[in-house]
Computed example of a mutant assay.
Amino acid sequence: MSSPSDSATADETPSVDSDRGSFLRRVLALFALGLLGIAALGMTLATQLGTTPLPPGVDLPLSLLVAASLIPNTLLLLVAVVVGAYCAPRAGFRSHVDERVARGTPLLSNLRSELSTAVGVGLAAGVAIVGFDAAAALVVPEVAQLHGGGATPSVAELLATVPLRFLYGGIVEELLLRWGLVSLLVYLGWRLLGTGVGPSEGVVWAGILIAAVAFGVGHLPALLGTADSLGIPVSPGLVARTVLLNAVGGVAFGWLFWRRSLEAAMVGHAASHAVLVGSSVLAILL
Rank of each mutant, 00 (worst) to 15 (best):
S7Q: 14
A8C: 10
D11A: 14
V16N: 02
D17E: 05
F23W: 01
L24Y: 08
A29C: 04
L35M: 07
A40W: 00
T44P: 00
L45F: 03
T47C: 02
P53F: 00
L54S: 12
V58E: 10
L62N: 09
A67P: 04
A68W: 11
I71T: 12
I71Q: 00
L78I: 07
C87Q: 12
R94T: 15
V97I: 15
T105W: 00
P106K: 10
N110V: 03
S116I: 12
T117K: 04
T117R: 07
A118N: 09
A118E: 04
V119Y: 02
V121Y: 01
G126V: 05
A128I: 14
A134D: 13
A135L: 15
A136D: 15
V143I: 12
L146R: 05
H147W: 06
H147D: 13
G149T: 09
A151T: 15
T152Q: 12
P153A: 02
Y168I: 05
L175A: 11
L181A: 15
V186N: 06
L193N: 07
T195V: 08
V204G: 02
P221G: 11
L224A: 15
G225W: 00
A227Q: 13
S229K: 13
G231C: 10
P233Q: 15
S235D: 13
L244Y: 09
A247I: 06
A252Q: 08
L256M: 13
S261D: 08
A264C: 09
H269L: 12
S272R: 05
H273K: 05
A274I: 15
V275W: 00
L276R: 04
A283K: 07
L285K: 13
